[in-house]
């Protein structure tokens, strides 16, 4: 029994139908625990006040925004190397979820930044990188919707994803370099991971787990939709030729 068995769309659908209900429950439970605990049962930060609590949305969504792209990269490679349709469709399904995560991260960041830095937006390297990532996501989705033939769309978007990943990493370094040239060090950015104290840390873990499960559930669900869409297309094509 190998994992590649689930590259078969029918088997994949059957598995995802069994896994999905549990995933939904776990993700909502984790999110509820993490967010309620985080919002109502943690003390205010001595420096940032209650604004710090947006961390429970901001950090997990930012994490997932990057991980979603990484998942798309892996799925694209699997499609190009092994030609499993489910893999290509999973990459396609993950992109809008990734866009949503990037948007949540950007918006919560702006909401957090306003009271902290006195401005909705600064061209901090991290913020800028996310904006660039957002552009990559949009291009990827636009290319999917522009190509008619699903197989060549999968081919082209996979190549875009791979080349885009290289350039995304390059941009990350370029942006770091560029901003130092302007701002003399990133004094505005907060190093969240090391600064977070234990009180904030445990609810954050729940919230992150919730976001991970939510992402998995959404991607599985959307992949199922894409598989059914392809199935309809295949059936209709046979029908037309039969007539």
């Amino acid at each position: 029994m190998s994992i590649w068995e689930y590259a078969n769309p029918v088997k994949f659908l059957r598995l995802s139908e069994r896994v999905l209900p549990a995933l939904w429950v776990i993700s909502f439970a984790c999110l509820a625990i993490g967010l309620i605990w985080g919002f109502f049962f943690t003390p205010d930060d001595f420096r940032q006040g209650s604004t710090v609590k947006i961390i429970y949305l901001h950090v997990p969504s930012a994490l997932m925004a990057i991980n979603a792209w990484f998942m798309m990269l892996v799925a694209s490679l699997i499609w190009l190397i092994r030609r499993h349709h489910v893999s290509a469709l999973a990459a396609k399904a993950a992109a809008p979820v990734g866009i949503a995560m990037t948007l949540i991260a950007l918006i919560t960041g702006a909401v957090w930044g306003q009271p902290m830095w006195g401005t909705w937006w600064v061209w901090d390297p991290r913020l800028t990188s996310f904006l660039i990532l957002f552009l990559f996501y949009i291009g990827y989705v636009a290319l999917w919707s522009a190509v008619d033939d699903p197989d060549s769309a999968a081919d082209l978007t996979s190549m875009l994803c791979i080349v885009g990943s290289v350039f995304a990493v390059l941009s990350r370094y370029a942006v770091n370099f560029w901003n130092q040239g302007l701002h003399q060090g990133a004094s505005l950015s907060l190093d969240k991971e090391t600064n977070v104290a234990n009180v904030f840390y445990h609810p954050l873990l729940f919230s992150i787990a919730g976001f991970v499960c939510l992402f998995l559930a959404l991607v599985l669900y959307r992949t199922g939709t894409e598989i059914r869409r392809r199935r309809m297309r295949a059936l209709m094509a046979r029908e037309v030729r039969h007539a």
């Binding site: 660039i132 552009l135 290319l143 522009a146 875009l160 370029a174």
Partner: peptide, 26 residues
Amino acid sequence: LTVGLKRGGLLLSLLVVPLYVPTLIF
């Protein structure tokens, strides 16, 4: 990437601009 697509021109800009970021910055 966009050869043969109907609305290729605009899409081409959308795809290429993010790839131009490092070159432009440096």
